[in-house]
Structure formats: C-alpha cells, structure tokens
Design a protein around this nucleic acid. Structure first.
Lengths: 197, 197
DNA sequence: CTGAAATTTTGCCGGACATGCAAGTTCGGT
DNA sequence: ACCGAACTTGCATGTCCGGCAAAATTTCAG
C-alpha cells in the first residue's frame, strides 16, 4: 500500500497535532489570543519546530481546508474522462464536503475563520490555488487553453463559488437544508445561468 | 459639497502617498525587498505613522484594489432600480476597470500582486468583502434574503469571478482581446451557464 | 487674534513573529 | 552495531505591530 516509514508517520502526526492544536486554541481563545508557543506546547514540540511545518499560525489553523482543496483536485483528476465536466465538479465538491467524524469542530473552526480577515485571506488564497489547478484540468478535458481562454477559469471559479457559498450558508445555519442539497442547488443555479430568484 | 477640511484632505493625501509609494517600491524592488521604513520615508512621514494608516505593507500595496472594490459597490447602489441585475453588475465591473491615467502602473502592480501569495490573500479578502456587500444589494433588489438564499451570493460570486478572470487573462496579455471584450465575454458565458467551449 | 480643545504625528518600548545556523537527537539501511 | 540522512531544538538576529504619552498641528469659540 502506501509507503509508511516511521519517520513519515511521525511527520504527518506532528503536522496534524499542530494543526488540531491550533484550531482548538483558536476556537477557545480567539485567533489573536493564540501564540505559536501555546500551539507548539499543546502539540508537544518546541516553538522552533512549529516553523518547520507552518510559516505562521494562520496556515496551521486553515490547514484542513488547504488539504481539502488538494483533495478536490486529486479527486477531479481521478474522474472518468468522458463525464460531463459540470457533473464531475459537482461530485468532487460533494465528496470533499461529506460529513466527517469532526463535523462540529469543523463548523466551529469555519465560524472562527470567517470572522478573521487574516484567516479568510489564507483560506481564499488556498481556494484560489485550487481553482487555478482545476482550470488546468478543465482545459485539458475540454480542449481549451488555460492561458488564452476564459472558459476553464470561469468554470473553476464557478465551482469554487458554489462550494464556498453552500458552505457559508450551511455554517450560518439559518437555512434548514442540509449541505448536499445546498451544493446541488448551487451547481444547478450556476449551470442554468442564475436566471433569477 | 463634500466636507473637506484641511485635516481630511491631509489624511487622504497621506494615505495616497503611502499607498503609491508602497506600490512603486514593490514594483521596483519586489515585495520582499520593501521595508515599511522605506515606504514611510518615500511618503515623507515617520514609520510609526505608516501604521496609523495601514496595519502592514501588504494592505498599503493592495489599497487601490480595495478602494476599487468599494467603488464597485457604490456604483451598483447607484444603478437604476428597474435594471436587470446581470446588466447592472456587468456595467459596474466595466466602469471599475475603465482605462485610467495610471494604466501601466496598475498592470505592473497586478503582476507583482499575482506572484505573491500574501498579496493575493489580501486582495481576495477585499474582493470577498465586496461580494458580501454586493450580495446584500442583490438581495434587496430581487426580493431574496442574504441570510437564507443562495441566489444573491452566487450572483455576487459570479460577478467577482468574471471580474477577476477577465483581469487576470488580460494582464497576462496572451490574448489579443481588450479588457471590455473580455468582461463582456465572461459575463455572457456565466449568464449562459457556461455551456461549453 | 488668542487660547483651549480635538486630532494627528512621532519616538519609544515590548511582545510576538520569522528564519538562518549549528549542535544534538532519532531513524533507516547495511 | 554503525553510519549517514533526516528531524528537532536552542540561539541569535532582524522585522513587524500596536499601546502609550509627549509634541505638533488644526479647529473653533470668545
């Protein structure tokens, strides 16, 4: 299966421990009230080691979303070649947002992120990188050119907007719908050209 | 007219001086090669004063885009009430991206921003805030609810994607089309539901 | 015009951040 | 068991960012 030397396992474990500690502390104390020293301490490593894994606490906090964006790209690359591109995008977004074992923590984290401009910036930056790579995949599948055509970037951007909008509205919780419904609705509306309410 | 005491004028002048100096230095030396001291020096104020206007050099560099986003919102609020919302959005984006007297500088600045993740994050953060406010305006005009409906956020997001995509492709310059054409094309494709290449 | 009030600028300071470097420690393969 | 590679850690340096209070500037009432 996957190559898993002890070193590799330790590395991912440390990375996850740092990320989880950062998220937990951010939810508890607020982002500004968290120091790198506290995160490192909670994860059982030295502050200096923290910087071997993340350049700053913001990156550690939003790491789950950065990783999730990468998962979306990988999943998209693994879709069957003939599948309509809109369907493929909807499916990978749906899979990425499937209920996890840490659902409540993720919601709490999303709320914290949303209220902090610095975190929003990092999150959107990761999303932008995801869209860039999605555009390349789309271009390859549709015979368009990522450097010359609007189409692949618009499609990737639309998928990103659908994902982000559905998530945001779901996290706010003022709508009774569950997440898959919101995702389907968002994709359907975009696919229809947002004709009106 | 507009209240314009000496104090107000000096404040905006200082802010613009700092922003312009930051952008100029960033283009000349690269973002990392710019210190707050250099920016403040170029603008004729003390480094401490810089922090009274911007929390960091990144914010100063992307200030033109932040301000531009605000201009889009104001322009949208000023559109006639009956106008189709898609038309209104396309028009305000077009107006925001009209050729200015500092066209070449803006292009150079956009290229610098694009290559620096920290700046991209700040820029996207400002764009996100613009979209949030656009969604409110859209909700008010279409009888939808920004807290419950996907529609206004999807529409605002689509407009943001159209603007950003058209700008990016235009700045890269690999397409012969000019900016208004790209904007029109982006909006037309989104409005048609991105049917395919 | 003059003096007081409000606002802005500035220097100083401290905590936190980020990163290079070198020494110490742990792991992997022979 | 051993050596080289990879990871951790402490140290040191430079920058960032914001609070605070004093000095300077602008506003406004008398």
């Amino acid at each position: 299966m996957t190559e898993t030397s002890l070193r590799e396992r330790k590395k991912v474990a440390t990375r996850q421990a740092l990320s989880r500690a950062a998220a937990l502390l951010a939810v508890e104390r607020g982002v500004e009230g968290v120091t790198i020293e506290a995160i490192a301490d909670a994860a059982g490593v030295s502050p200096r080691t923290f910087h071997n894994y993340f350049p700053g606490k913001e990156e550690a906090i939003v790491a789950p979303f950065t990783d999730g964006a990468q998962a979306v790209i990988d999943a998209l690359r693994a879709r069957p070649a003939g599948e309509p591109i809109w369907d493929a995008l909807r499916e990978v977004v749906r899979e990425a947002l499937l209920p996890t074992d840490t659902r409540d923590e993720t919601i709490a984290l999303l709320r914290v992120v949303k209220q902090n401009p610095a975190l929003v910036g990092k999150q959107l930056c990761g999303l932008g990188e995801m869209q860039r790579q999605i555009a390349e995949v789309v271009a390859a599948r549709t015979g368009t050119h990522a450097g010359r055509d609007l189409y692949p970037h618009l499609l990737a951007g639309a998928a990103g907007v659908a994902m982000r909008t559905a998530l945001d509205l779901w996290v706010d919780g003022r709508t009774g719908a569950d997440l898959p419904e919101l995702i389907d609705s968002a994709f359907a509306q975009l696919r229809a050209g947002l004709p009106g309410p």
